[in-house]
Nucleic acid binder design. Structure first.
Lengths: 260, 260
DNA sequence: CCAGCTTTGTGCACGCGTTCACAAAGGCAT
DNA sequence: ATGCCTTTGTGAACGCGTGCACAAAGCTGG
């Protein structure tokens, strides 16, 4: 559910791998890599599915989109499947990545081992703060944003990670795209608008927490009969120019959310 | 439909909200909050949809699950909608959260403003490293993992964030759940197994990048004439374990990425 | 009070994703 | 070889999510 820009009939010849399947391939790959390190030669769909946390039928169907790589009565060859999935995901080649915005999060990302371990190479760390330039984070020197275009061109970067504040995310995004980046991983809490052909995936910590809160509330409400909220919001319809509802906070945030 | 007056679609109101809709509510809420700060009184579904990056029909349908909060010919009252969505998401109450694993990522999360701004309060930072205990991160003192159960009980924590290495994630998870946590946001690259009734959402940086790499590879392959997946690395059956390099195509290279 | 314009709310159809259930395929023991 | 047992690969049904298209609702001007 990244960007809804998908006017492709999903008919890229036999390469019509469903998006949902693609999203699970890294999961399978991780489980298979673990098995590989333990020198396990083969796995059944049932075992692998358990390790990946999915349904075995789903896993088999997912693999069927890649081809018939299993052996009936035996299972899947671990090493072979690792290779096939890696190739399908494009991990058999090197992907230089730039991280823009070296704050707490950007630094954490730079240090994250999961990047380098699968074909992703941090080509550069970029920040707009001049005082950061020259400092070393995760063994890589932070460069100033002025050189962004040059860095991307020199390294052939096609994937960019945005870890800036929300305010500058779109601007950074535009520059990345203009410089040739066609895939963006966005950590800033903003909706990015990009031209067609550019993929954007967003990771939003706040949204994830809010979804959890919803379910948490629902769980709590299930046990209580019908707990009426202690907040009489009133003023349902518009029409009334009375937009001066109760007494929200000066910051304009959710009224009732204000901590006591 | 019938009498559309009462907004309670057969089931328990909150029960009837599709998961996909719940996932978008925080997005709408953010856009609405921005409008609220600019003192915009009302918005049309078209405007709000654009701001949230979704289809306007989808937005209207989403809101219809909450109830009829709009005014035909006018749009939606911003303040009122902010309140309704906040309430539906459970943000009208305070959610104490613990973050376990105060490494680079954990520290970044602790400093992330998006937490505190919407009813989430970092009740405690917990780490197993004794040398970290007592140090202050984001204005909060890091506590040792020994006190995990006590901290959760004392603060009534029901949401936990796991930012530990993959190796200890399941163990931490088990302790959290045993102590009463029923919602977990997992940043560790592992599949967590939890008892029924516990919600887990995972944020996996590596997986997101791999999905981007897939699309990136596909984009690159589209321009080249139909690149037949010539690459019989052999070793289909369980017998041969040889991973043979083959001839991928134009780019030729293909450095092995998989660690042994 | 009525006509006309705007925007919501939603019935409906379509397509994707999930799951079931089973025939086909392959190994292994005899 | 042959028959049995295991596991894959997939056809088909089902359910969810998306987007279209339009009637109903509400505001505004005459």
């Amino acid at each position: 559910m990244a960007t809804g820009r998908n006017h492709r009939p999903a008919t890229s010849r036999s390469r019509g791998i469903p998006e949902a399947t693609v999203a699970r391939l890294p999961l399978y790959l991780r489980a298979l890599t673990a098995l590989s390190e333990r020198s396990v030669p083969t796995v059944s769909s049932e075992e692998l599915a358990a390790a990946a946390g999915v349904n075995s039928a789903k896993l088999r169907k997912d693999f069927s989109y890649l081809g018939s790589y299993g052996t009936r009565g035996v299972g899947y060859d671990v090493e072979y499947l690792v290779y096939q999935i890696s190739r399908e995901l494009g991990l058999t080649q090197d992907w230089p990545v730039v991280i823009v915005g070296i704050g707490n999060l950007g630094a954490a990302l730079a240090n994250y081992g999961g990047f380098a371990s699968r074909g992703f190479r941090v080509a550069a760390l970029i920040d707009a703060d001049p005082t950061l330039a020259g400092r070393t984070v995760a063994g890589i020197e932070v460069e100033h944003a002025d050189g962004l275009e040059q860095i991307i061109a020199d390294n052939g970067v096609s994937i960019g990670v945005i870890a800036t504040p929300a305010g500058s995310a779109q601007q950074v995004c535009d520059r990345l795209v203009a410089a040739g980046v066609t895939s963006i991983l966005n950590f800033a809490p903003t909706v990015l608008s990009v031209p067609e052909g550019v993929d954007v995936r967003k990771v939003d910590l706040s949204i994830e927490l809010q979804i959890l809160a919803f379910h948490e509330q629902r769980k709590a409400g299930e046990e209580a009969p019908e707990e009426e909220e202690t907040a009489p919001p009133a003023a349902p319809p518009a029409a009334a120019v009375t937009k001066k509802r109760s007494e929200p906070g000066p910051d304009g945030d959710v009224p009732a959310v204000m901590p006591a």
